[in-house]
Amino acid sequence: MEIGGGFFGTIISALFVGLIVGALGRLIVPGKQDMPIWLTIVIGIAAALVGTAIMASFTSSFWLTLIVQVALAAVGVYLIAMMRGGRRRHSPA
């Protein structure tokens, strides 16, 4: 078992890429998103996987793939923020 390689390296890489892609996606969405960092990472990982799968058949360009991943993360952050915001009840003033 290697430390930093193999399965554990893949997990660490996925978390790191998910954090970066999710954070960039959050920066694109206007306003404050009330969501924990773990949810941002999950959205980022999902966006990275889906973006890679989509772009694999079109190009091998890192930058184009990253743009698609970040766009997908922004859509994911927006949708989750809307769902989370819609469930919150505001007390009358």
Rank of each mutant, 00 (worst) to 15 (best):
S61E: 13
G25W: 01
D34H: 08
V75P: 01
I41K: 01
G85P: 03
F7W: 12
D34K: 12
G18E: 06
M83V: 14
P92F: 15
Y78H: 14
I20C: 10
A71N: 00
G5R: 10
A71I: 07
R84K: 11
M1A: 06
S60I: 05
G76A: 07
I12K: 12
G25Y: 04
G4D: 00
Q33C: 12
L72K: 02
G51D: 09
E2L: 08
V50M: 11
Q69E: 15
S57R: 08
R88K: 15
K32E: 15
L19H: 07
I3V: 11
V50E: 13
M1L: 12
I3G: 03
V50Y: 12
S61R: 07
E2R: 10
G86R: 11
G76V: 03
I11G: 01
I37V: 14
A93H: 14
G76N: 01
F8I: 05
A93W: 13
A93R: 11
G51V: 06
F8C: 04
K32G: 10
L39R: 12
L24Y: 02
V77A: 04
R89I: 15
G6M: 05
F58V: 15
L64E: 10
Q69C: 08
I12P: 06
A14R: 06
V68N: 00
P92A: 14
S13V: 09
T40M: 06
M55T: 06
R84V: 11
L24V: 01
G86Q: 10
S13H: 08
W63V: 09
A74P: 08
A73N: 06
I54W: 07
G4I: 09
G31T: 05
S61K: 10
A53R: 08
L15H: 05
V29L: 00
S61C: 06
T10G: 14
I41H: 00
A56C: 01
V68Q: 02
L39I: 11
A71Y: 04
V50K: 06
V17M: 10
M1S: 12
T10S: 14
M83I: 15
P30A: 03
I43D: 03
A81V: 04
G6E: 05
A73Y: 04
G22P: 10
V68S: 02
I43E: 01
G51M: 01
M55Q: 13
G22D: 02
F62C: 02
V70Y: 05
Q33W: 02
V29C: 02
P92W: 12
M83F: 15
V17T: 12
Q69P: 00
L49E: 12
V21E: 00
A14E: 10
A23Y: 03
A71F: 06
I3H: 11
G86D: 13
T52E: 09
I12T: 13
S57W: 09
W38C: 06
L49P: 02
R88T: 14
V75L: 14
V68R: 00
P30K: 05
L19E: 08
I37W: 12
I80N: 02
L79K: 00
L72I: 02
G22Y: 05
A48K: 04
F62Y: 14
A93P: 08
V17P: 02
A53L: 11
F16H: 05
